[in-house]
Design a protein around this nucleic acid. Structure first.
Lengths: 191, 191
DNA sequence: CATAAATGTTAGTGACTACTAACTAACATT
DNA sequence: AATGTTAGTTAGTAGTCACTAACATTTATG
């Protein structure tokens, strides 16, 4: 709709992801958006308003449930792969916001709360999936909550270390990481 | 040795961990250290010098090799537990610096490079340990490098999510996380 | 007690910060 | 022809930043 607004929002998000909310100035954002500083204040009430607009525009709220009820085929390897891919897809969509949430975790605690809330929801879904798999005798008797947490933690570890450090040694492992992780869990969890 | 210097360094590290290098002011640091702003500049050349002194004082360089050659008992469960505990111990010692490294990753890339370097070294040690275990027929034939990376990524995921968000849902899992993770790997990797 | 070192106080520098006001230019719509 | 919209320009406010200089006061040490 509004081209200038978009340019400003993009520049703001990109710079805040890079340097953090506090450390980036309106002047800097204006320069990167190739508009004058004044134009920024014409489009957005103040710095906080600009940030909140950027959040609203670039945060992708997940809809785990839908995927969970439709895409499940009750094969551990296939399902865990789908779940992991969905997780990475979502986190990559929200990468900028995730990075800002980390940097400003004491300044904007709401951001972190949102992430925690969604992670908790995802954990619950995985737990209930594991329980169903146990009932179907396709998964051994084990502490499903612990397994769900370990699985999510592993995905989180991979995502965050690549998101934080793009030139990371993990980058050469993008494909094989997922395959080997799923294999590890299937090996251990299969009935 | 120097009480005032220590007070300033402590306050600086604590506040930089909380808000980042850029966002914390000398005035703020002085107030928290209960000294006047001038005293800070009497003890340290400038803000960067203060930061570098804090780094020097509060960074704990690991000595993985020693632990690796002495503590290994060639039992997968015992050894992985020791490795994980050593990893968490080290990361907790360097927690403040780790958090600053994240927040200022584009401002002080050297910090991240140090972390990467040490992680890479630890990975190599685990890989060579896995290879030895295979030679001893105590571990199945598998991509040991992938396994080492997944193991480290899982530990990293747990550590970073607890370090970033202290009120995290993972906190109730501190003990059982390690046990279950080791079990998962042993289940899958044992010969 | 006397001297010296460490610290505090005050005032100030120049640069930068978020943000505002007043005015102007270009262009599209009515 | 009148008006609305969107943008730029210039100048300015009031506050903060890192950092310095000069001088007063406290504290430690001989």
């Amino acid at each position: 709709m509004n081209k200038t607004s978009n340019k400003i929002l993009e520049a703001a998000l990109r710079l805040m992801e890079e340097k953090g909310y506090q450390s980036v100035s309106i002047k800097e954002i204006a320069e990167h958006a190739q508009v004058s500083e004044m134009t920024v204040f014409r489009h957005f009430k103040n710095k906080l308003g600009l940030f909140e607009s950027a959040l609203e525009k670039y945060s992708y709220i997940p809809h785990f449930e839908k995927s969970f009820t439709t895409d499940i085929v009750w094969d551990l390897q296939t399902d865990l792969t789908h779940i992991a891919e969905a997780y990475f897809h979502l986190m990559n969509q929200n990468k900028s916001i995730f990075l800002i949430a980390i940097q400003e975790r004491n300044h904007f605690p709401e951001l972190h709360e949102t992430i925690t809330k969604h992670t908790l929801k995802l954990k619950k879904l995985i737990v209930s999936y594991f329980k169903s798999m146990q009932e179907r005798n396709q998964m051994k008797e084990t502490d499903v909550e612990a397994q769900a947490i370990i699985f999510l933690t592993t995905l989180f570890g991979f995502f965050s270390s690549t998101a934080l450090w793009e030139s990371h040694f993990l980058h050469e492992w993008k494909e094989s990481f997922l395959i080997n992780t799923i294999e590890l869990f299937c090996d251990s969890l299969k009935q």
